[in-house]
Design a binder for these strands. Structure first.
Length: 278
DNA sequence: CTCCAGGATAGTG
DNA sequence: CACTATCATGGA
């Protein structure tokens, strides 16, 4: 077992996992188990450190997954020095949030499932998909299921897919799986320029503006992307006093205002807005 | 019971 | 173009 130790100041486990970017994690002992594609790691915090425990061969995978090569202090400073009070408060509260570098195939499927849905249900559907169609794996003495391969999903019937609670999203999942089997290369898209990547994602059945932005930010590291959902629409209107009416234009405004920090700031503010209004 | 959840699609004007 | 009814499911 390998241990990766990182300063806790810019790596809060709970905030990073629960700000809506990732759906496969469970509380375990003093921390969390996190699953990515077919891999697993265990996370916990000490007084001043965040510790990742994983298999030796997965060390670099999870170092990159948790974005440990990126320095968050300058991102945080930039938010704290912003003229927008909402952003300052959000950054202060969520400075331990990191944007993960997730498996691309898993992320595309996960965010197709996320449309018009809530986080507990998204987690439940994905977990059932893994149990039903994923490969049995083990980590230490624990067993879990990998994210299903595209071929496993393509071979499933719509009725079988719907047993996981997918509802009307089942055809989205099936069609994407079939297209990957036929040669559509999700991972290969990383070489495309941002505008071409976005156009390609929007062309996928079941993916619109918001989901495309999420995939670009959470799997392709396009940190100038700013997904606008119901929460960010509230932020835009209530905290930025914006007058635009559609979400695509709001997203554009945030991107133009915050540049390459837009994605990080979106996570800070999403986390703040959701936690403060409860 | 109604409403809504980190929306997208197909159809209409 | 912009606007909107509808989509399956479960929890509040």
């Amino acid at each position: 077992m390998e241990k990766i130790t990182f300063d806790k100041k810019f790596f809060n486990i709970k905030d990073t996992l629960t700000c809506g970017q990732v759906f496969r994690f469970v509380k375990y002992e003093n921390g969390y188990l996190v699953f990515s594609w077919d891999k697993c790691c265990y996370l916990y915090e000490t007084l001043d450190k965040t510790i990742i425990e994983c298999n030796v061969e997965d060390k670099e995978y999870f170092t990159n997954y948790f974005d440990l090569h990126t320095d968050y202090s300058s991102i945080y400073e930039s938010a704290i020095n912003s003229e927008y009070l909402m952003l300052k408060k959000s950054a202060e509260m969520g400075k331990g949030i990191r944007i993960l570098n997730q498996n691309k195939v898993e992320t595309v499927f996960s965010f197709i499932i996320s449309q018009n849905n809530n986080i507990p249900r998204i987690k439940s559907i994905i977990e059932k998909l893994c149990v039903k169609f994923g490969k049995l794996c083990c980590f230490d003495d624990k067993s879990y299921y990998a994210f299903p391969t595209p071929s496993a999903l393509a071979n499933a019937t719509l009725e079988e897919l719907k047993e996981t609670g997918l509802g009307y999203r089942a055809p989205f999942v099936k069609r994407l799986a079939e297209s990957i089997i036929s040669g559509f290369d999700i991972n290969g898209l990383s070489t495309l320029p941002a505008y071409a990547l976005k156009a390609t994602l929007l062309n996928i059945y079941g993916i619109g503006e918001k989901v495309a932005d999420c995939v670009m930010l959470f799997a392709y590291k396009k940190t100038d992307c700013f997904p606008v959902d119901t929460w960010m629409e509230k932020v835009y209107k209530e905290d930025f006093f914006g007058m635009l009416s559609n979400r695509k234009e709001m997203s554009k405004w945030f991107t133009e205002t915050f540049g390459n920090n837009a994605g990080y700031f979106q996570q800070y503010m999403f986390h703040y807005k959701r936690n403060i209004e409860k």
